[in-house]
Amino acid sequence: MILRRYKTSLLAIVGLVLLLGYYWYQQPLIVSPFGFRLLANQGTTLALAALAQLTVVLTGGVDLSVGAIVSLSNAIAATYMGDSPWSVFGVVLLTLGAGAGAGLVNGLLVAYGRIQPIIVTLATLYVYSGFALLIRPQPGGSVPGYYASTLTGAWGWLPYSLIVLLVITLAFRMPIMRSRLGTAIYAVGDNPGGAHMSGINVPRTLVSAYVIGGVLAACAGLFLTAQTTSGDATVGTSYTLNSVAAVVFGGAILGGGRGVALGPIVAAFFISIIISVLFAAGVSSFYQSVFQGAILILVLMFGNAWTLRARNRLTVLRS
């Protein structure tokens, strides 16, 4: 039963295990407290961004503004955070609020504006990255050292970043997805008309999903800020593409209604770590974009390979 629920995540899990095995063979040093911390930190930002993307993808949409929200959160956090714990606490709340606000705007435009999600978020991608640039025209800014070490440090073999990821997934996202709202999100993604007939408030569900996505993207931005300890208004750009790749690779369907959190999280680690594995294997850093694009394209083709086997092209056209 449990196994069947997570069957769609299997591809990502097998991929990550093979990748880590190869990395261990290449660089035996990664099996150390330091290596674990490094690996965990590398994937956490993308894992959070992938959770944000997944929440929106489950409703049948795509959120192209994830990367811009990550940049915006990074700009806010690195610009306004002072040294006192109260300032850190306040700015973290402010950043999460900005993420929720960005998600709210996306959600309202999709649900009540009735515009295709992909168009809404393509436009808001520019709006939010514009705001990020206004807040932080030049790269710079800083966060207190203890803010960075609390999120990216480690207790022996246990990296704090994994704890952060687990807490956000299990204490924030899972209770929501197991609630009535979560069921409604899956239902709306699977069949909006049917969901409406079953008494689900479709627009309100959509707005909630985008707000949750915005908050999770802001979490990704906050963690990224702890990693880089500075602000850059364009730092989040690659997270849009990679979060979509992680979600598809993690077994969710780009059309909505299907997908669990485990797959995209594992896939996010796979996508983040494969870059450093390639570096370790001596591949030039200029190939980074090539691999990111190639991974997304191959994953998408793999996910839709059934269209090649379809006997009747009309079924394909209507899908």
């Binding site: 992909i118 593409l241 780009l254 980074q288 974009s289 090539v290 997304l296 394209i297 998408l300 269209t307």
Partner: peptide, 21 residues
């Protein structure tokens, strides 16, 4: 492959960026 062009061409764009680099 019947993929939405927004996601597909975004991937192509990344691939071409890498090719240029």
């Amino acid at each position: 492959f019947r993929l939405h062009s927004l996601v597909w061409t975004l991937g192509m764009n990344a691939l071409l960026e890498g090719a240029t680099m």
